[in-house]
């Protein structure tokens, strides 16, 4: 029988406990750095909106939010206006703004819808009724969407590379702490939380997932 077990190195050739602990710490620190700093930067890609739209200018010209974001006759919500609505005014260029020029030439002229990045876009398996919130509960647009209606320029859009939705849904803070920067966050738990506070119930699955 041999003196040493074949599977275990002799004690003098092994790394000491301290060294092993240091390696543990290195692993810990590196992963935390990459998880907290590199990961969020990698997860989201920053995209510019195709046209830098000024809500402020339009609000002055056409009135409140519901001039463009209106309820249809059947109660459904129109969302972002399409080319048909925009070209009602912008069939030709009305100012010397370069973005308007781009819009008139590249979209109105080409009869092409603007591929807006929607900050509050929800997955298709979510049924959300604007009517219930705005008409039913009398909520303001800004409660959820923030002050976008007052903005002069569209902020950058951060797209989650995996899910394809806006960073606004989860919220800017990875830990989802503090107030959201733009209105409210839009994850399911955010809906449930608000419903619990306002109605006393988180609601049932089928209310949003038909």
């Amino acid at each position: 029988m041999s003196k040493h077990d074949n599977q275990t190195a002799p004690a003098e050739t092994r790394a000491s406990g301290w060294v092993i602990f240091v390696f543990f710490l290195i692993g810990l620190v590196l992963s935390m750095l990459s998880g907290w700093i590199a990961f969020p930067n990698l997860l989201y890609s920053t995209k510019e909106q195709p046209i830098d739209f000024s809500h402020q200018v339009h609000k002055e010209q056409v009135g409140d939010c519901d001039s463009c974001h209106y309820f249809r006759d059947d109660g459904s919500f129109s969302g972002a206006p399409g080319l048909d609505e925009c070209s009602g005014c912008h069939s030709y260029q009305m100012s010397d703004d370069p973005d308007e020029e781009k819009f008139v030439n590249e979209y109105v002229g080409e009869d092409k819808e603007v591929p807006w990045h929607i900050y509050a876009e929800q997955p298709h398996n979510v049924f959300f009724s604007h009517a219930a919130h705005v008409k039913g509960a009398g909520m303001q647009c800004s409660t959820c969407h923030g002050d976008i209606g007052e903005s002069d320029s569209l902020r950058e859009y951060q797209e989650n590379r995996i899910s394809g939705y806006s960073r606004d849904i989860w919220g800017n803070s990875m830990l989802r702490l503090g107030e959201a920067e733009h209105g409210r966050r839009h994850k399911m738990n955010d809906c449930a939380q608000c419903h619990l506070e306002e109605t006393g119930s988180k609601g049932e699955c089928f209310q949003c997932h038909k």
């Binding site: 710490l25 692993g27 810990l28 992963s31 935390m32 998880g35 990961f39 969020p40």
Partner: peptide, 18 residues
């Protein structure tokens, strides 16, 4: 064992991140 420890440290660290 140092490398194993590095990996374990990395794993523990990752759970402490989002």
């Amino acid at each position: 064992r140092c490398f194993l420890s590095l990996v374990i440290g990395g794993a523990v660290g990752t759970t402490l991140t989002p």
